[in-house]
């Protein structure tokens, strides 16, 4: 199929960017979105032009680096997939596709479609851990955990830190991400010990880095490739009030 790509090009963090239009012919519907961009870049290199810079690593939906904003949706219009797993068969022949970087003050553009997501690392460093001594793994069943809690903790822990929640939110809020990171610990006995310090530190960092607040709009949940639920945000709120 033939496509028209409108891609945000920006040389570096300090330069002004703009949209460039690239016609793409003969795109196979079996390609992934990133493979389609690879094909574009190959063409650009052959023409002696700068390839489009975009983040990617695992290409199997687990590293969270491949975020881009495609036709009004983070990771494109298909629910519950990352850009690397987005198949081209979801696009129509002749379609114009807008491709933009995440937009948030806390995620400045570094180049083209790549943004600096180290703000998430800073939130994690502030409290997204449990302090345990390293050494031999303890016996897994010595502390019983209700199945429901371990399931919910697991569901929260699969957040890959891609930032789509921030990109989707009209307030560029990081609440869904932070709520996932809080929930994965809050639900387990090992995480309770530092629960108060953790939630205070992570929320303080989140505010300080310039993410917006939560309007309970729900765009994050709709766009999260790992389907992290809004119930986690309610839990984050509860954890925060408990930490007073």
């Amino acid at each position: 199929m033939d496509l028209r790509l409108k891609i945000w090009r920006q040389k570096d963090a300090s330069s002004q960017g703009s949209f460039e239009t690239y016609p793409m012919e003969d795109v196979s519907p079996e390609m992934s979105f990133l493979e389609m961009l690879d094909a574009l870049n190959k063409k650009l290199v052959e023409q002696g032009k700068e390839p489009v810079a975009f983040d990617h690593d695992c290409r199997e939906g687990i590293c969270g680096s491949c975020g881009m904003y495609i036709n009004g949706h983070p990771h494109g219009p298909v629910p519950a997939v990352t850009t690397c797993l987005l198949s081209m068969r979801y696009f129509r022949d002749g379609e114009t596709i807008w491709i933009e970087p995440w937009r948030a003050r806390a995620f400045p553009v570094i180049r083209d479609l790549i943004v600096d997501r180290s703000a998430f690392d800073k939130i994690q460093t502030a409290g997204g851990f449990i302090s345990v001594n390293t050494g031999g793994a303890p016996e897994a069943n010595s502390i019983p955990v209700p199945k429901k809690d371990s399931d919910n903790a697991f569901d929260a822990s699969i957040c890959i830190g891609c930032g789509a929640c921030v990109a989707a939110c009209k307030n560029s809020s990081a609440m869904l991400f932070v709520s996932a990171k809080i929930s994965q610990f809050a639900l387990l006995p090992q995480g309770r010990i530092e629960a108060k310090e953790r939630v205070r530190a992570m929320v303080e960092k989140m505010d300080e880095l310039g993410f917006g607040s939560c309007s309970n709009t729900g765009a994050c949940e709709a766009e999260c490739p790992k389907q992290i639920r809004l119930t986690n945000i309610a839990r984050l709120n509860r954890e925060y009030y408990k930490a007073f």
């Binding site: 409108k6 945000w8 949209f19 904003y69 495609i70 036709n71 009004g72 949706h73 983070p74 219009p77 807008w98 933009e100 937009r103 948030a104 003050r105 806390a106 989707a168 009209k170 307030n171 560029s172 809020s173 310039g210 993410f211 917006g212 607040s213 309007s215 309970n216 709009t217 729900g218 765009a219 709709a222 766009e223």
Partner: peptide
């Protein structure tokens, strides 16, 4: 919240949301 997104999206925002929010 306005300051948190200095540059908007050219492709608009098509995410499913609680509309009135």
């Amino acid at each position: 919240n306005w300051l948190a997104r200095p540059v908007g999206y050219a492709g608009g925002s098509k995410s499913e949301t609680a509309f009135f929010s």
